[in-house]
C-alpha cells in the first residue's frame, strides 16, 4: 500500500508538492512554538524592562482597585506609554462603565492622551477641556468641603496640571507655541515648582524669539536645581544667540 501511495502522489505532482509544503510549514510552526515554550515567553515571566515592571505593578494595583480613578489613570498611562492602546481603551471604558469611587478627571486626561496617540489631536483637545472642567469642579467641591470644616486652603489638583501639560504638548506639536505657553503658564500657577516645565516654557519662549522670558524661566529653574542640565544648556543657547545678535 505504501508503494501504491507513493505512486499515487507521484501521479499528481501538485499533490506531492503541496504535501511537502504542508509538512515544511508545520515544522516551522512547531519550531516557533517550541522556541516560545522554551524561552518562557508565554508564561507570567519576570519583568525585563522598567516599563514591564511598572506595567506589572500598575496592573496589580488596578486588579485590587478597578474603581479608583488615580489607579486606573496610572495603569492606563503605563499602557499608553507601552503602546498597548487597545488594552488602555478597554481599561478606560471599564472605568467609565462602573460607578467610580473617586473623581474621574485623571482618567479623562488619560483618555485624551490615548486619543492624541491613536485618534485626532482636535478630539484630544476637546476631551482635555472636559478633563480640566472636571478637575476644577472637583477641586471646588473639595475646597467647599474643607471650608465647612474650617480649613481655608486651596486643595491641589494634580489632574489639572496633567491636563495642562498634555494640552501644551499637543499644541506644541501642532505648531502653536503661543497657545502652549499660555497653557503652561496656567500649569505653573497651579504648581510653580516644576523645573522641567519651566525649561519647557523657556524653550517655547526661545522658539518664539522672546529670549528675555526664556532666560528668566531657565534662571528660575536653576534656582530650584542649581546644576540642572537642560536649564544650563537652554541658558547657554539664549546667551549665545544674544551675543550673535
Amino acid at each position: 500500500m505504501a508503494v501504491r501511495s507513493t505512486a499515487s502522489t507521484g501521479a499528481d505532482p501538485w499533490v506531492r508538492w503541496l504535501t511537502f509544503a504542508i509538512l515544511a510549514v508545520l515544522a516551522m510552526v512547531l519550531t516557533g512554538i517550541v522556541y516560545l515554550l522554551y524561552t518562557g515567553a508565554m508564561a507570567d515571566r519576570m519583568p525585563r524592562t522598567i516599563v514591564e515592571m511598572q506595567l506589572k505593578d500598575r496592573e496589580q494595583e488596578y486588579q485590587a482597585a478597578p474603581g479608583d480613578a488615580e489607579v486606573v489613570a496610572a495603569y492606563a498611562r503605563s499602557l499608553i506609554e507601552a503602546e498597548r492602546y487597545s488594552r488602555a481603551r478597554s481599561v478606560i471604558a471599564a472605568f467609565e462603565s462602573i460607578e467610580s469611587t473617586s473623581p474621574d478627571a485623571p482618567v479623562i486626561v488619560e483618555k485624551a492622551r490615548l486619543e492624541s496617540k491613536t485618534g485626532s489631536a482636535e478630539e484630544a483637545l476637546k476631551i482635555l477641556d472636559e478633563a480640566i472642567a472636571s478637575a476644577e469642579a472637583q477641586r471646588d467641591a473639595k475646597e467647599k468641603e474643607l471650608q465647612a470644616k474650617g480649613i481655608f486652603v486651596r486643595p491641589p489638583a494634580p489632574a489639572l496640571v496633567d491636563a495642562a501639560l498634555l494640552k501644551s504638548e499637543i499644541l506644541s506639536e501642532r505648531g502653536d507655541p503661543t497657545a502652549a505657553i499660555e497653557v503652561l503658564t496656567a500649569a505653573l500657577e497651579e504648581n510653580p515648582t516644576m523645573a522641567d516645565v519651566l525649561v519647557w516654557r523657556g524653550d517655547l519662549y526661545a522658539s518664539t524669539g522672546d529670549t528675555a522670558s526664556a532666560r528668566a524661566d531657565y534662571e528660575r529653574a536653576l534656582t530650584m536645581i542649581p546644576d540642572y542640565g537642560p536649564a544650563l544648556s537652554g541658558l547657554q543657547d539664549v546667551q549665545t544667540e544674544g551675543s550673535n545678535e
Binding site: 516557533g32 516560545l36 515567553a41 525585563r48 522598567i50 514591564e52 507601552a82
Partner: peptide, 14 residues
C-alpha cells in the same frame, strides 16, 4: 506564531 515570537520575545519598552 511568528507574530508572537517577535512581540513576546521583544521586551516591552526595550
Amino acid at each position: 506564531v511568528g507574530y508572537f515570537v517577535f512581540t513576546l520575545l521583544e521586551p516591552v519598552g526595550a
